[in-house]
């Protein structure tokens, strides 16, 4: 009986050893692969912001292009903007490593996201996209409840610029009182000159296909990476960029 018990103990010991060995090999392989030091690619000098009149940020000649499909009313998009895209813009975009392109992908489930995209696009046309993007994401919790985002747009721009943006919003369902758009159905309005660009972004997203927001994809040396959906932290994204830049 004792011999049988020893025999069984030996088998359990061998099985456990094999399991431990497999775990150890997995850890070692991952560790060895990533143990090599990363050599940062030399940062290119930041070019003049030639894309001020669009929704892109950084130098067009940056080695990496990151395209983000987002919805101004989506909480994960706000999280991505505040925790990841802001540090990205301050670092890799500012240093000419990444060219960041924003694409609108307002989801039908969000009542005011289409209108928010219009405001942002109108601001982009006069070169103030970044300010409106920040104002909309920073105050998302408030305006997504009542749809009144106009005051945040107004607060983020100078009176002159706001007038220019408001003029571009003409025909987009803005009421005579100028407080709240008549149409907040999340649909393109007939006669709104801004909707063509939004619809173009949506069509591009559907072709990828984008199934949720935020979704992003990358291009490095002409090769596409992704798409991938959901929030990603700056630390993880930075590791990915560093890896691309060492290739």
């Amino acid at each position: 009986m004792r011999q049988f018990s020893r025999y069984r103990d030996r088998r359990i010991f061998r099985a456990a050893s094999l399991a431990v060995l497999i775990v150890a090999i997995s850890l070692m392989t991952g560790g060895v692969l990533f143990a090599q030091t990363h050599h940062e690619a030399p940062a290119k000098a930041m070019q003049p912001a030639d894309e001020l009149a669009s929704k892109s940020m950084g130098s067009k000649s940056a080695p990496i292009t990151m395209e983000v499909f987002s919805d101004f009313e989506c909480p994960s998009c706000r999280m991505l903007y505040e925790q990841t895209l802001r540090p990205l813009m301050g670092d890799y975009v500012a240093n000419g490593k990444v060219y960041l392109v924003h694409h609108d992908f307002p989801l039908p489930m969000h009542k005011y996201s289409y209108e928010a995209a219009r405001w942002a696009d109108a601001a982009a046309r006069i070169g103030h996209y970044a300010e409106i993007e920040q104002a909309l994401f920073d105050n998302q919790a408030t305006w997504s409840a009542d749809g009144n985002m106009q005051k945040y747009v107004e607060g983020a721009l100078s009176p002159t610029d706001y007038k220019r943006v408001a003029k571009l919003m003409e025909g987009c369902g803005l009421s005579a009182a100028g407080v709240k758009p008549a149409s907040a159905s999340g649909q393109a309005a007939h006669g709104c000159s801004l909707d063509a660009a939004i619809e173009k972004d949506v069509a591009l997203g559907k072709a990828i296909p984008v199934e949720a927001t935020p979704t992003f994809r990358f291009t490095y040396k002409g090769k596409p990476y992704g798409p991938t959906a959901g929030f990603v932290s700056w630390q993880v994204l930075k590791q990915f960029f560093d890896q691309l830049l060492t290739q």
Binding site: G30, L33, F34, Y225, G226, T228, A229, G230, F231, V232, S233, V236, L237, Q239, F240, Q243, L244, T246, Q247
Partner: peptide
């Protein structure tokens, strides 16, 4: 390098 890149793409998915 290609495997590392793929693993870092996967890291984004795990992070999400």
């Amino acid at each position: 390098g290609a495997i590392k890149t793929s693993l870092l793409m996967f890291a984004m998915q795990v992070d999400s």
